[in-house]
Design a protein around this nucleic acid. Structure first.
Length: 492
RNA sequence: GGCCCCAUCGUCUAGCCAGGUCCAGGACACAAGGUUCUCAUCCUUGGAACAGGGGUUCAAAUCCCCUUGGGGUCACCA
């Protein structure tokens, strides 16, 4: 048996949908695991809706996820071209074949008639679908109409019987042909339609296994009928459960949910490996307890047989947990590298940071490693490291006015601030000695200090914050906070 | 509405195919406690589910049927 050939076939009409990303991942995993081939094919048949940006977004998304195609528009391959817009000749030949086989018939019905038909069916609560009006035309009339140049589409003539597919995830699924309408394969302008080109391409590209969303299930029936009508081998199919919106209510859609776009996750700065791990777990599981799986482990353990059948809501909490987990596992230097673009974009540092900025970022990376869920979070969490404190948030302000002695305490500490500033550990020892001399609790010092230095109620170990600021800034902020405290102390 | 698919904790799921070991396991979220200068991490503990009804069977979360519920799809879009 030859190795599987699978494909991901998005249409470049918007951004890369997470469901699409998940489909791409499953296909990629299956290919990597079996030594098969992962093909990327652009389904850009609809010239009016395709955009170049969208195409780029798809490439970028796949790259970000680390899902490199073996064959595709950018990487080439022997069975290309890999964009449908460039496969006109192949389709033209296929149309000729279709006609020669007599599996298709011309339909002269206008869009208006079709719309009326549909409206009538809807009103009468009948089954929707083409009424085969043009199938009854006699041969002479057909030639006459065609000679007269009457516009017509080409419809597949669905034979009697039923189609059964042995779905890789759902088992046997069947439909009676009476429930499948004669679909249009070629538009009146001669352009082929999706359900037609998919079949041609899957056949010519040697696709042996199609993994795609369950929303394609009804298309699959039509496509299988076409495969057979053309005398082609039918590939294996596996229909993945749909991804539902976070609150249920229908499949995740681009319109309703911003979370539908992969870009959303890229921009937020989730760890890409976490996103891969998370995506893998939407509709698939290894066993009853494993949730953390590296890319390599996924390749090793992934199996089509363990794909679940029911739709899954998008669990954003789980992604945050996973991303936090993966970030915690990074070493500070790697985390710093990941943080740089986000900090630069916020204007906190240069895109190509100087050595001092680099040192600060590395220090922040170490300090915030346990506190980040996504890379971009550092921008807001650590503003204090890049900008002066302008206000004291929530509990931080309370910590500055709790006792009338606080301004004096802050000034004393400013005076006692060692020069140069020692490393955080030694600085803490110094602070502990400071409070001991005064017979006060450590917490009484530490809370106002944190407020002074960061303006926030929480954050990394305090003396790391001081080190990140540097002595001069740390000193200045103590005095600033002392003044603020004086001005805001309750009357009494 | 026709057709198709699905149905275990709030969420994602394991278990179902090969019925007993399941008064149903894990993870996320939530709650409580511990560690800690704060926040977070980490650790411990807790509450929390087999949609309903019929069968089959000595025995059903597991097999069958019905109901209900959810979803998908019915374009000269993909």
């Amino acid at each position: 048996m030859t190795t599987p050939r699978v494909r991901f076939a998005p249409s470049p009409t918007g951004y890369l949908h997470v469901g699409g990303a998940r489909t791409a991942l499953f296909n990629w995993l299956h290919a990597r695991q079996t030594g098969g081939t992962f093909i990327l094919r652009m389904e850009d048949t609809d010239a009016a809706r395709n955009t170049k940006e969208s195409r780029e977004t798809i490439f970028r998304g796949l790259r970000w996820l680390g899902l490199a195609p073996d064959e595709g528009p950018e990487e080439g391959g022997d069975l290309g071209p890999y964009s449908q817009s460039e496969r006109g000749e192949i389709y033209a030949a296929a149309v000729a074949d279709l006609r020669a086989r007599g599996v298709v018939y011309p339909c002269f019905c206008t869009r208006e008639r079709l719309a009326e038909l549909r409206a009538r069916q809807e009103a009468a609560k009948e089954r929707y679908g083409y009424d085969r009006c043009c199938l009854g035309l006699d041969a002479d009339e057909v030639t006459r109409k065609i000679d007269a140049g009457e516009a017509h589409t080409l419809r597949l003539r669905v034979p009697e019987g039923e189609t059964v597919i042995d779905d890789l995830v759902r088992g046997e699924v069947k439909v009676a042909h009476a429930d499948v309408e004669d679909i249009i394969l070629v538009r009146a302008d001669g352009a082929p339609v999706y359900n037609f080109v998919v079949v041609i391409d899957d056949h010519h590209m040697g696709v042996s296994c199609v993994l795609r969303g369950e929303d394609h299930l009804t298309n699959t029936f039509k496509q299988v009928i076409l495969f057979k009508a053309l005398g082609f081998d039918v590939p294996l199919y596996g229909h993945l459960p749909l991804i539902l919106g976070p609150k249920g209510q229908g499949k995740l859609s681009k319109r309703k949910h911003p979370e539908a776009a992969l870009e959303h996750y890229i921009d937020r700065g989730f760890h890409p490996e976490a996103v891969v791990n998370w995506l893998a777990l939407i509709g698939w599981s290894l066993d009853d307890k494993t949730t953390i799986l590296s890319r390599d482990e996924l390749v090793q353990h992934f199996s089509l047989g363990r794909i679940s059948k029911s739709g899954a809501r998008l669990d954003l909490d789980k992604l945050e947990h996973l991303s936090g987990h993966y970030i915690r596992e990074m070493d500070p230097a790697a985390l710093a590298d990941a943080l740089v673009p986000f900090l630069a974009k916020a204007g906190h540092i240069a895109e190509d940071p100087n050595s001092q900025q680099r040192a600060t970022v590395e220090h922040l990376a170490a300090a915030y490693r346990e506190r980040l869920v996504a890379f971009s979070d550092v921008v807001a969490e650590a503003v204090w490291a890049f900008q002066p404190v302008t206000d004291y948030e929530g509990k931080a302000s309370k910590n500055l006015v709790e006792k009338p002695t606080i301004p004096a305490l802050l000034r004393d500490y400013a005076d006692a601030l060692p020069d140069p500033l020692p490393d955080p550990e030694a600085h803490e020892a110094h602070a502990r000695a400071f409070v001991e001399e005064r017979g006060m609790g450590f917490g009484q010092l530490v809370h106002p200090l944190r407020a002074a230095w960061t303006g926030r109620p929480g954050g990394p170990p305090l003396f790391d914050c001081a080190a990140i600021l540097g002595r001069k800034e740390a000193h200045a902020r103590l005095l600033q906070a002392a003044t603020w405290s004086e001005e805001n102390l309750p009357e009494s």
